[in-house]
C-alpha cells in the first residue's frame, strides 16, 4: 500500500514559511486560478519554472516533489500524447505544465505550513460561519482528524484485504469491503469516545 505523504513539513525560516497561512492559502488559490488561465506553451512553462524556484527556495526536497508528481506521470503522458495528436503540441505542453505547476505549488504549501497553522486558518474561516451555528474549533478538529485518519483507514483496508485473501476470497469485493466498512465505523466510535474523554466535546 502506498503511504500518503503526510507529516512532510519541512522546518525552515524562509519567507514562504513565515507568510501568514490565510494569505498563503488565498495566494495559492489565486495562483491556481491564474495558472489555469494561462494560454500557449510558453507562459505555463514559465509558471512551472517559477513554481520550482519557489519550491527550491523554500527548501522542499526533490523527493517530496517527485512524490506529488509521480502518480500523475502516466496520466500526463497519455494526455500529452492525445492533445498533441488532436490539438497540437502547444496545447499538450500547456496542459502538462499547468498541472505540474499546480502540483508543485500545492506541495510547497503543504511543506511550509504546519497543520496546526492550517487549523488556525480553518478556524478563522469557520468563524465567519459562527452565526449559522458552526463551532470553529470543532471544524478545525474534524479537518485535522480526517487527515490523520487516512493512514489508519488505509491500514484497515490492507488488513481486511489480506484477511479476505487468506480465506481465498480475494475475488469477492464484498468479502473485503464489508469488514472494511464495519471496522471503519467501529474505529470511528472509538475515536469519538477518545475525543469525548479528552473533553473535546465539551463547551469552552
Amino acid at each position: 500500500m502506498r503511504s500518503l505523504p503526510l507529516g512532510l513539513q519541512v522546518p525552515g525560516d524562509t519567507v514562504w514559511h513565515r507568510l501568514p497561512t490565510g494569505r498563503k492559502l488565498l495566494g495559492l488559490v489565486l495562483l491556481g486560478v491564474g495558472v489555469v488561465a494561462l494560454q500557449g506553451p510558453w507562459l505555463p512553462l514559465l509558471a512551472l519554472a517559477a513554481a520550482l524556484a519557489v519550491a527550491l527556495h523554500a527548501g522542499v526536497p526533490a523527493r517530496s516533489l517527485a512524490l506529488g508528481v509521480r502518480p500523475l506521470l502516466v496520466l500526463l503522458v497519455v494526455v500529452a500524447a492525445l492533445q498533441t495528436w488532436q490539438r497540437g503540441w502547444p496545447v499538450a505542453v500547456e496542459v502538462v505544465a499547468t498541472t505540474l505547476t499546480l502540483v508543485v505549488l500545492a506541495t510547497t504549501f503543504t511543506a511550509t505550513t504546519p497543520t496546526d497553522d492550517l487549523l488556525d486558518a480553518v478556524v478563522r474561516v469557520a468563524r465567519v460561519l459562527r452565526p449559522l451555528g458552526v463551532d470553529p474549533e470543532r471544524v478545525a478538529l474534524t479537518f485535522s482528524l480526517a487527515i490523520s485518519s487516512i493512514p489508519v483507514v488505509t491500514t484497515l483496508f490492507t488488513q481486511t484485504r489480506e484477511a479476505a485473501k487468506a480465506r481465498g476470497l480475494e475475488r469477492s469485493p464484498r468479502a473485503t469491503l464489508t469488514p472494511f466498512a464495519v471496522r471503519t465505523v467501529a474505529h470511528a466510535h472509538a475515536v469519538g469516545d477518545a475525543l469525548a474523554a479528552r473533553g473535546l466535546g465539551d463547551p469552552d
Binding site: Q9, S144, A190
Partner: peptide, 15 residues
C-alpha cells in the same frame, strides 16, 4: 484523563 486500548483511536493530530 483516559487512556484507551487502541492508541490509533485516540491520537488525533498528524505529528
Amino acid at each position: 484523563g483516559f487512556v484507551f486500548t487502541q492508541p490509533a483511536a485516540q491520537l488525533v493530530m498528524p505529528t
